Amino acid sequence: MSNSVLWHGVYPALLTPFTQNEEIDFDMFKKNLKVQIEAGVSGVILAGTLGEASTLTAEEKFDLLKAALSTVPEGFPVILNIAEQATKVAVEIAVKAKELGATGLMLLPPMRYKAADEEVVAYFTTVASATDLPILIYNNPVDYGIKVTLDMFAELEKYPTIQAVKESTRDLTNVTRMINRFGDRFKILGGVDTISLETQLVGAVGSVAGLVDAFPAETVAIYKLAQVGRLEEALKIYRWFMPLLELDIHPKLVQYIKLAATAEGLSNEYVRAPRLTLVGEERERILKIIEDARATRPTLPDYKNL
Rank of each mutant, 00 (worst) to 15 (best):
M1C: 08
S2F: 10
S2V: 02
L6R: 15
L6G: 12
V10G: 14
L14F: 06
P17C: 04
F26C: 10
F29D: 02
G43R: 07
G48D: 06
G48F: 02
E52W: 05
E52V: 14
A58D: 14
E59N: 10
E60Q: 06
F62D: 09
F62A: 13
L64W: 02
S70H: 07
I79K: 00
E84I: 08
T87G: 02
V95Y: 03
A97D: 06
D117M: 08
D117I: 00
E118P: 01
A128Q: 08
T131C: 04
T131M: 01
I135N: 09
I137G: 00
I137C: 02
P141S: 04
P141W: 11
K147I: 14
P160M: 00
P160W: 00
I162K: 03
Q163S: 09
Q163Y: 12
V165F: 11
T173K: 15
M178C: 09
G183I: 06
D184L: 12
D184Y: 15
K187Y: 13
G191E: 12
I195K: 00
I195P: 00
I195V: 12
S196V: 03
Q200T: 06
V202D: 02
G203Q: 10
A204S: 13
L211Y: 04
A214E: 05
A217W: 15
E218K: 06
T219A: 09
Q227Y: 12
Q227M: 15
A234I: 09
L235H: 02
F241Q: 01
M242S: 05
P243G: 08
L245W: 02
I249P: 00
K252Q: 10
E269W: 00
Y270E: 08
P274Y: 08
G280L: 04
E284N: 04
R285F: 12
D292M: 01
D292F: 02
P301H: 03
P301C: 05
Y303N: 13
L306Q: 08
L306E: 09
